[in-house]
Protein backbone atom coordinates (compact mmCIF):
# COMPACT_ATOMS: atom_id res chain seq x y z
CA UNK A 1 0.00 0.00 0.00
CA UNK A 2 1.30 3.37 -0.93
CA UNK A 3 1.18 5.49 2.22
CA UNK A 4 1.32 8.86 0.55
CA UNK A 5 -1.43 8.02 -1.91
CA UNK A 6 -3.72 6.81 0.81
CA UNK A 7 -3.04 9.76 3.11
CA UNK A 8 -3.44 12.23 0.26
CA UNK A 9 -6.78 10.78 -0.85
CA UNK A 10 -8.17 10.65 2.66
CA UNK A 11 -7.05 14.20 3.43
CA UNK A 12 -8.59 15.60 0.26
CA UNK A 13 -11.82 13.74 0.97
CA UNK A 14 -12.03 15.05 4.53
CA UNK A 15 -11.20 18.63 3.58
CA UNK A 16 -13.57 18.57 0.63
CA UNK A 17 -16.53 17.27 2.58
CA UNK A 18 -15.65 19.20 5.76
CA UNK A 19 -17.28 16.48 7.85
CA UNK A 20 -15.19 14.53 10.35
CA UNK A 21 -17.98 12.21 11.50
CA UNK A 22 -17.41 8.46 11.82
CA UNK A 23 -19.57 7.52 8.82
CA UNK A 24 -17.90 10.04 6.54
CA UNK A 25 -14.48 8.91 7.75
CA UNK A 26 -15.38 5.29 6.90
CA UNK A 27 -16.60 6.29 3.45
CA UNK A 28 -13.37 8.22 2.90
CA UNK A 29 -11.18 5.27 3.91
CA UNK A 30 -13.20 2.94 1.69
CA UNK A 31 -13.03 5.25 -1.32
CA UNK A 32 -9.30 5.85 -0.96
CA UNK A 33 -8.68 2.09 -0.76
CA UNK A 34 -10.93 1.25 -3.69
CA UNK A 35 -9.67 3.87 -6.14
CA UNK A 36 -7.25 2.32 -8.65
CA UNK A 37 -3.68 2.09 -7.41
CA UNK A 38 -0.80 3.28 -9.50
CA UNK A 39 2.25 1.16 -10.10
CA UNK A 40 5.63 2.21 -8.84
CA UNK A 41 8.37 1.40 -6.42
CA UNK A 42 7.73 0.91 -2.76
CA UNK A 43 9.39 3.03 -0.13
CA UNK A 44 9.67 2.55 3.59
CA UNK A 45 7.60 4.58 6.00
CA UNK A 46 10.80 6.12 7.35
CA UNK A 47 11.70 7.48 3.89
CA UNK A 48 8.22 8.95 3.47
CA UNK A 49 8.33 10.63 6.85
CA UNK A 50 11.77 12.17 6.33
CA UNK A 51 10.79 13.46 2.87
CA UNK A 52 7.51 14.86 4.19
CA UNK A 53 9.45 16.53 7.00
CA UNK A 54 11.65 18.22 4.41
CA UNK A 55 8.55 19.40 2.54
CA UNK A 56 7.14 20.95 5.72
CA UNK A 57 10.46 22.62 6.50
CA UNK A 58 10.54 24.03 2.96
CA UNK A 59 7.70 26.44 3.78
CA UNK A 60 9.53 28.60 6.33
CA UNK A 61 12.73 28.29 4.28
CA UNK A 62 10.91 29.58 1.22
CA UNK A 63 9.80 32.70 3.11
CA UNK A 64 13.32 33.24 4.46
CA UNK A 65 14.74 32.97 0.94
CA UNK A 66 12.12 35.40 -0.37
CA UNK A 67 13.12 37.95 2.27
CA UNK A 68 16.79 37.40 1.43
CA UNK A 69 16.00 38.08 -2.22
CA UNK A 70 14.22 41.29 -1.27
CA UNK A 71 16.94 42.56 1.05
CA UNK A 72 19.91 41.67 -1.14
CA UNK A 73 19.30 41.64 -4.90
CA UNK A 74 20.22 38.40 -6.63
CA UNK A 75 20.99 39.27 -10.20
CA UNK A 76 22.92 36.30 -11.52
CA UNK A 77 21.85 32.86 -12.65
CA UNK A 78 23.64 29.54 -12.39
CA UNK A 79 22.85 25.97 -13.32
CA UNK A 80 24.05 23.24 -11.01
CA UNK A 81 23.62 19.50 -10.97
CA UNK A 82 22.35 17.72 -7.92
CA UNK A 83 22.75 13.97 -7.54
CA UNK A 84 19.72 11.88 -6.63
CA UNK A 85 19.36 8.18 -5.96
CA UNK A 86 17.76 6.75 -9.14
CA UNK A 87 16.20 3.85 -7.25
CA UNK A 88 14.00 6.12 -5.16
CA UNK A 89 10.25 5.68 -5.53
CA UNK A 90 8.61 8.03 -8.08
CA UNK A 91 6.45 9.63 -5.39
CA UNK A 92 9.54 10.54 -3.38
CA UNK A 93 11.27 12.00 -6.43
CA UNK A 94 8.17 14.06 -7.07
CA UNK A 95 8.34 15.41 -3.52
CA UNK A 96 12.06 16.18 -3.98
CA UNK A 97 11.31 18.17 -7.12
CA UNK A 98 8.47 19.91 -5.29
CA UNK A 99 10.74 20.90 -2.39
CA UNK A 100 13.44 22.31 -4.65
CA UNK A 101 11.07 24.18 -6.95
CA UNK A 102 8.96 25.52 -4.08
CA UNK A 103 11.86 27.50 -2.63
CA UNK A 104 12.13 30.64 -4.74
CA UNK A 105 15.88 30.62 -5.31
CA UNK A 106 15.99 27.23 -7.00
CA UNK A 107 13.96 25.61 -9.79
CA UNK A 108 14.39 22.08 -11.14
CA UNK A 109 14.83 22.27 -14.89
CA UNK A 110 15.22 18.67 -15.76
CA UNK A 111 15.21 15.29 -14.08
CA UNK A 112 17.52 12.74 -15.61
CA UNK A 113 16.73 9.06 -15.07
CA UNK A 114 20.40 8.32 -14.56
CA UNK A 115 20.30 10.10 -11.28
CA UNK A 116 20.59 13.84 -11.20
CA UNK A 117 18.51 16.98 -11.24
CA UNK A 118 19.44 20.01 -13.25
CA UNK A 119 18.77 22.91 -10.89
CA UNK A 120 18.54 26.52 -11.95
CA UNK A 121 19.66 28.82 -9.19
CA UNK A 122 19.56 32.52 -8.49
CA UNK A 123 22.82 33.74 -6.92
CA UNK A 124 24.09 37.02 -5.58
CA UNK A 125 27.50 37.05 -7.24
CA UNK A 126 28.47 36.17 -10.74
CA UNK A 127 29.52 32.51 -10.84
CA UNK A 128 33.16 31.91 -11.79
CA UNK A 129 33.69 29.86 -14.88
Amino acid sequence: MNYLNFALRLTIWLLLTADFGLVNLAIGILVSLLLPQGRGGVATLRQWLSTLGKVVMAVPRAYIEAIEMIVRPHRHEAIIREPVDPTRAPGLIFLDIFTITFTPKTIVLHYNEEGWFEVHQLVERRPEK
Partner: peptide
Protein backbone atom coordinates in the same frame (compact mmCIF):
# COMPACT_ATOMS: atom_id res chain seq x y z
CA UNK B 1 13.73 31.49 -16.01
CA UNK B 2 14.83 34.59 -14.12
CA UNK B 3 11.25 35.85 -14.08
CA UNK B 4 10.04 32.46 -12.92
CA UNK B 5 12.05 32.75 -9.70
CA UNK B 6 10.32 36.03 -8.92
CA UNK B 7 6.91 34.68 -9.85
CA UNK B 8 7.40 31.85 -7.40
CA UNK B 9 7.89 34.50 -4.70
CA UNK B 10 4.81 36.46 -5.66
CA UNK B 11 2.32 33.90 -6.88
CA UNK B 12 3.10 31.05 -4.52
CA UNK B 13 4.39 32.68 -1.34
Amino acid sequence: LYKLHFLSVSDTL
